[in-house]
Design a protein around this nucleic acid. Sequence first.
DNA 1: CATGAATGAGTATTCATTCAT
DNA 2: TATGAATGAATACTCATTCAT
Lengths: 217, 217, 217, 217
Amino acid sequence: MVAPERRRGRPPDEEARTRRREKILGCAARVFAAGGYQKTDVQAIADAANVAKGTLYLYFTGKEELFLAAVDQGMTWMRAAVDSAIADLRDPLDVFERGILAYLRFFEEHPEQVELLIQERAEFRDRKQSTYFRHREEGAAHWHSLLRELLASGRFRDLPLTRIDDVMNDLVYGTMFTNHFSGRHKPIETQAGDILDIVFRGILSDEERAKMKDTKS
Amino acid sequence: MVAPERRRGRPPDEEARTRRREKILGCAARVFAAGGYQKTDVQAIADAANVAKGTLYLYFTGKEELFLAAVDQGMTWMRAAVDSAIADLRDPLDVFERGILAYLRFFEEHPEQVELLIQERAEFRDRKQSTYFRHREEGAAHWHSLLRELLASGRFRDLPLTRIDDVMNDLVYGTMFTNHFSGRHKPIETQAGDILDIVFRGILSDEERAKMKDTKS
Amino acid sequence: MVAPERRRGRPPDEEARTRRREKILGCAARVFAAGGYQKTDVQAIADAANVAKGTLYLYFTGKEELFLAAVDQGMTWMRAAVDSAIADLRDPLDVFERGILAYLRFFEEHPEQVELLIQERAEFRDRKQSTYFRHREEGAAHWHSLLRELLASGRFRDLPLTRIDDVMNDLVYGTMFTNHFSGRHKPIETQAGDILDIVFRGILSDEERAKMKDTKS
Amino acid sequence: MVAPERRRGRPPDEEARTRRREKILGCAARVFAAGGYQKTDVQAIADAANVAKGTLYLYFTGKEELFLAAVDQGMTWMRAAVDSAIADLRDPLDVFERGILAYLRFFEEHPEQVELLIQERAEFRDRKQSTYFRHREEGAAHWHSLLRELLASGRFRDLPLTRIDDVMNDLVYGTMFTNHFSGRHKPIETQAGDILDIVFRGILSDEERAKMKDTKS
DNA sequence: CATGAATGAGTATTCATTCAT
DNA sequence: TATGAATGAATACTCATTCAT
């Protein structure tokens, strides 16, 4: 018995399909970010990707899936960027600092991803969970164990983990949005430095701080 | 005795007009927040306000103006809520704390205003400045003089004013969005307390803090 | 028993009402002619007549009646203009000539009436008879007796009355429309002269005319 | 042997496209004529042509272009009808006579084209030149050389060309409109005969004609 | 698989008419 | 009677999706 000849004649070329899919997603991200979800014609994405409109429907079920896939891809890239920035660091405090820097840098360099996040919230508010928060949850374990380590080793003062978690997350989230929405262009390193200075050391003077210590937290 | 200068026809009732305008705006805010700008049918707003569709166009030039007026009204309310919460406080640190609390409380109690902010950004991204940041700028003077007072009196350690300004603004902005988008429902007082604890005193342990002090700020 | 006092207190002032009605009609004619029936807002007519929109409905049942009344008024004026032009003429041939001249002159001086005629046909094509043809019919008796006189007295050659009637009517109708639609501005006297020259004497040369006479008319 | 250059996807069929375009135009002419430009719903045209509303917009930019193209097509047909009627005639006087007959016959047989002419004037009065007069100008050269020939050969008496031109044009134009607007249904041949009888030989009796000859034309 | 012509549901805005004052 | 605020019916055009080739 002979191996099926089809195999020889035509390789499935799954790879080409994947490449095309990613190309479409990249174009979609750009076009959606430039025009907004509603105002963007599917045709405009097809044009940008240099394929026919019908072809898009061979790769995605519709405009919605196309959009959501683009957002998801962006968030995946973001996490990869952060992971890669902290990959070879040893000191947990360095990881903490460089992670924040990498997060802000990614959105600074990919403003279209910020647009996609906002668009997603505006147009698909009814979905259980937004892509951003889903990815945040998926990455939460690493982040929590980092915080736990910093707490356990006594480098952070004794605070509930969720307090640090919430405040830090809200702060970088708000920073990213404000950067984008208000057109602020402070250098990323300065910005990360400002954040860490305040979050690490607080804004109270030593005197005021001492007074407050007596009180119960 | 002089005959009252009765004008011909139906007398215009300025007050009634204003009341009706505000009623329409309130309904518009609710309906837009519930359905999103694009998906909201103008008819739905008319129904909610119990007026005919054509009447809306006697008060607003169109859907867009109606929406933007609703956003603006919301931000005006927000500032009024914060101002009123701090009106009779003496200690600047109290003002600082209660201001943050009032801000968070307003958006907690008026989630539709958060929706409007996000909708505005998504649909009218090309406008010079979003309503939120315009109002933030209008209120900046008060806020800055508060910070200056706290710095001058030595209750805050010696930091650049904009560092505190930026970080605090970004933090409450991110907190508000996260509350709304992720469905987090921490009690507002706890939340404000968590924020202030970290922002006031920092997260580093005393030991780590001492180490860092030697370094450059 | 006393006569009702109301009579004394307020004269019915039918005259004022009529004057106002005519003023409105005049304005309506101008505004309709300028903008076309469909594109003309009732409000624009009210503005032009300096009355409130609602007032129009006290004088006319609606936009349609207002328009048709304006057309009718115009045709009434036209007939009066022609009648007045021929009033004191004795020679029937003079009446014939001056009647045509007066007709063309009226529409030259009142181009808005031409517009109203065309608008009426375009928008109310389903009405039994257009205002123009109704007025033409109403004036037909005079016109026919004029033609009959000219035929009977041997000043016109022996032709069926309707042949002259139709051709003359069609000719001046077509002339009026062409003047207006193509922007032709030949002096009215020249134009009437050209028409009469051809209609009175024909365009064939004497030779060709003679040949044709032998044939059957 | 070379593989036929099969193009990807559905091949464009230029011929089918043209056929469909003309079908749509024909339906549009009928529906517009029946209902008037303003009152005609674009959907009604789509229904009549048995295509979807959106398809109309693949062939025409909008309702206006659709209408104007229908008018233009009609006038093109009219000129073709007249040209074809006189194509093989030798005697210029025959051409003159048969041309007028063909003109009247066309509009008798295509009353919807008369409607379109009137609709165009009513709704698009601001356009530089109406379709009718544009086509008339395009055909003027032939017509003028015909008149010149008849004048030069002495078959018409010595008249200015424009006098004949204007009067004949106005006459047939007025005849066409009157036929349509007043519902007159004289047989076309009779009608053309009546026109030619009067225009050729005039209406004056020989006696009156002689008197007038003494006068200056 | 790829194409793009065809489809038809969906919507902001205008404006003739009404009617409370 | 005069007014003009309120009403709501009416309508061209777009664009996501399908499917014949």
